[in-house]
Simulated scan of single mutants.
Amino acid sequence: MSQYSHLSELDPELSAFLKEHPPQAFPRPDDVAALQKWWITHAQPRAAAYDKGRLPPDANYRVQDYKVPVEGGEITVRAVIPGTGDEGQQYPFLFWTHGGGLIFGDVDQDDFFLRNISTELQVTTLNVDYRVAPGHLFPVQLNDSFAALKWAIANTDTLSISLEKGFIIGGCSAGGTLAAGLTIRVRDDPFFRDTPITGQYLSCPLLVHIDAYSNRASFPNELLSAEQNKDVPVLTKEMIIWTFKTIGGSSTDPELSPVLATSHVGLPPTFFQICGLDPLRDDAFLYDRILREAGCKTHVNVYPGLPHVFYVEYPSLQSSEKYQSDIRIGLRWLLNKGENTPHQSSL
């Protein structure tokens, strides 16, 4: 039994909510067209709802789309920059990779969220519209994001960025997969020798290919949540299996399973948000342990009894409001380069 198994006990507030509002049935996980339609009509609007009503005045920030060349074409990136652009000020940098299993989502998905984060924390954000599966198999998503990141570093003046003030890579769910993979790539790439990442933010991340679970000799009792939480709301084990079949990639590829990287030494301070009722729960706990043993600073917020990205599906919960507040606290910690570690959530 995992030391975190008790975190799967359903949150009382969510339990009461589900009695009045049973979980919505998802389309079949093998019906890509139906899932894409569901994502556009249901998932993305819900993800945007919290932040849409909290947007600051337009005068407080600038939004600009850019085209970035990638292998075989070009992609869009969207920058949000605080201020009007007249003051010549430079800001820390948050590079963002959206979730959606590397199959769904686009540059609009987290747009309102990033507008709020940019103005609240006074950071430039860049949201990358990487190409998705099944039309583009992994590692296209990672390669697109890496090209966009290099473009940003070459255009810091255009984006009003000061990397010395902070250089963070972040993502949610499969966006966390990309963020973790990018952080390792950046550490190892000479292009970034003078511009190292100062923090990474991993929200409900997917960090281990599910087929790699059978080769877990080094961590036999640390990846049990996929089975324990296989039939919970929002994300099921069946959907995870389908996702990996759809995106391609090898179960032994450390860029798809960052826990398998040869070394984790030299990675930056990392902020985790982990949901107790999430099949991916133990991915994050394992990666947190690996990073700490490699000498990295980490800060972890845990949400017992709550499913994957619950704050999107159940925004009225008090825990969802806390999740949003914790994002701001955790990012400020990263902007402070991991100094003065805030209180770790109790397990």
Rank of each mutant, 00 (worst) to 15 (best):
E255L: 11
E293R: 15
G105Q: 02
D65N: 14
G338M: 09
N221R: 13
D51Y: 11
E71D: 14
H98E: 09
P233Y: 00
F26C: 12
A34F: 02
I247K: 02
S345M: 12
A47H: 05
G176I: 05
H299R: 05
E227S: 12
R131M: 07
V234H: 01
A133S: 08
G166D: 10
Y213H: 14
P27M: 07
E293M: 14
N229C: 04
A179C: 01
G53V: 01
N229M: 03
E164K: 11
L126P: 02
T298K: 09
L347S: 15
T177V: 08
I40W: 07
T76C: 06
C172R: 04
L142W: 04
Y323A: 15
L267I: 01
T298Q: 12
G99A: 07
Y50M: 11
R46D: 11
G248Q: 04
L121K: 01
R216T: 00
T158W: 09
L102N: 00
D189Y: 00
P82N: 05
L121C: 08
S5C: 12
E313R: 13
D86C: 12
V63L: 06
T198G: 06
G175V: 04
V77T: 03
C275A: 12
D283M: 03
F310S: 13
L317T: 12
P269A: 08
Q24N: 12
I327T: 02
P269D: 10
D189C: 01
D108Y: 05
L137M: 03
D282P: 06
L35F: 00
N229V: 00
S145E: 14
D188S: 01
A212L: 09
A284D: 09
L55D: 05
Y303S: 12
V300S: 11
K165R: 13
H209D: 14
L102K: 02
L235D: 07
L286N: 06
C275D: 10
W38D: 15
G305A: 02
F104V: 08
T124C: 01
G181F: 06
F272M: 11
V128E: 06
D157R: 13
V107F: 06
L10R: 15
A212R: 15
F192Q: 03
P258Y: 15
A226N: 09
A59T: 10
V63D: 04
S250I: 07
F272G: 14
R292L: 11
G176M: 00
I184L: 02
Y213W: 09
L202E: 00
L206V: 14
A147H: 15
